[in-house]
Nucleic acid binder design. Sequence first.
DNA 1: AAGAGTCACAACCGCCTGTGT
DNA 2: AACACAGGCGGTTGTGACTCT
Length: 230
Amino acid sequence: MMVRTPSCDKNGVKKGTWTPEEDKKLVEYITRYGHWNWRLLPKFAGLARCGKSCRLRWLNYLRPNLKRGNYTKEEEETIIKLHRHLGNRWSAIAARMPGRTDNEIKNHWHTNLKKRSQQDSVATESIVSNSNDQSPTEQPTANTTFQSFNSTTQDCSPLSQHSSPSTSTVVSTENLVLMEDEFAFWDSDTDLMSGNFWLEPYMLDISYVPASEPEYSSQVFDVELWSHDT
DNA sequence: AAGAGTCACAACCGCCTGTGT
DNA sequence: AACACAGGCGGTTGTGACTCT
């Protein structure tokens, strides 16, 4: 559908939309050699792109096991709740959403969920103001909303960051209880919010490294090229 | 039918952090 | 301790597609 028209900067580095040919080159190279150095990778892969652009393209669109679009209601609920706890820490949110990227979540938030979240908070406020005599636990808080999707949520296991990229995940009630516990923990302990808790990669990415020689390929995996609609 | 306005999202930019020397 | 570099992150932009008038 979209996109920026291709252009080159003064150093001859191409910018703008990636072509299917470029995607193919990038995927083939990383499949064979891994991303041992993003800055040097485009040169070895025969791409007139900067390393950052290659990295972004790979992480957000070409990586295996990425979902594209088609957010489920459960996923959207998860994003809203995670955003409530984490703010604009998109990478941290993405770490809890297997198959989703920070960029994609960020875009979806700004285009769809932001408004809904604001509406929800307004609704919540009005409920709270109309029921001052009720127990706080009966408010539509994050915790109660968690319970609301426990029974139906699939493929968004909070623990799946420990699983292999090729392993599809099905969330269990047990896992989601843990998820709730974690959030309860954050509410009272801000150390976690600033610590390394989130630093574990959300996918065990293929950064198997052939030191300085790309010839030392150590692993080949199946890569599905996303179809291009342009 | 066409122009204007809005949406959706791929991609870029600049800053920050971690690591090596 | 200071510097350089690479990678990662969040904010923002640019533009095609879609909707409205």
